[in-house]
């Protein structure tokens, strides 16, 4: 089965890295995967998107993702952009957001559209462990838990390809925390 993920965040937050690591984790498991960011003017702080495709079979599609199976929002300030986040999302699909409490408009729209809303406080996780507002890796952990696309262990192996030393240790910790702390918002 083909599974498509859309990531939302802002330039400089590691949106591309999160998508990249998810694709690599799938490849480590022997699955097929694609990861591609959206390339426009690359500015720090501008809203950007990245996409991951995962399948058990070779992926031949080379086109945008229009009806994602899951949407992950790394940056909490984008949560007010309800329609942008929900674009192309079908019923029963999970939306994973970085928030203590998501904005009420988003909660209401998710109910209307029958979309499953998951939250994790990636901000607090990042500040506690990384001491800096890098929400991408805790959100990756959360996305892995919600989707069950790949094993947590595979994501940690993918992280080892990307990070080393203390940075690796801390990222492993936040991925695990994101994985363990994400909850369906009721």
């Amino acid at each position: 089965m083909l599974f498509e993920v859309r990531w939302h965040g802002r330039g400089g937050q590691g949106v591309v890295t999160a998508s990249d690591l998810l694709a690599r984790a799938a490849i480590i498991e022997g699955k097929y995967a694609q990861h591609f960011p959206e390339f426009g003017p690359e500015r720090m702080g501008a809203p950007i998107r990245a996409f991951t495709r995962i399948s058990d079979k070779p992926i031949e599609l080379h086109t945008g993702v229009y009806e994602p199976e899951m949407v992950v929002v790394i940056d909490p300030t984008l949560l007010i952009k309800t329609e942008m986040i929900l674009q192309g999302m079908r019923e029963d699909r999970p939306l994973v957001v970085n928030a203590k409490t998501p904005p009420q408009t988003l909660v209401d729209r998710c109910k209307e559209k029958n979309i499953k809303l998951y939250v994790v406080d990636a901000y607090t996780i990042a500040i506690e462990v990384l001491k800096r507002p890098f929400y991408n890796t805790p959100m990756l952990g959360a996305a892995v838990k919600v989707s069950g696309l790949v094993k947590l262990d595979s994501v940690l192996k993918a992280a080892e390809l990307r990070f080393s030393g203390d940075i690796l240790k801390k990222n492993i910790e936040v991925i695990k925390k994101g994985f363990n702390e994400v909850k369906e918002y009721a």
Partner: peptide, 12 residues
């Protein structure tokens, strides 16, 4: 190879 569509797309 198609710019970005393949050049900047990670594949297995």
């Amino acid at each position: 190879l198609d710019g970005f569509i393949l050049s900047h797309c990670l594949e297995r």
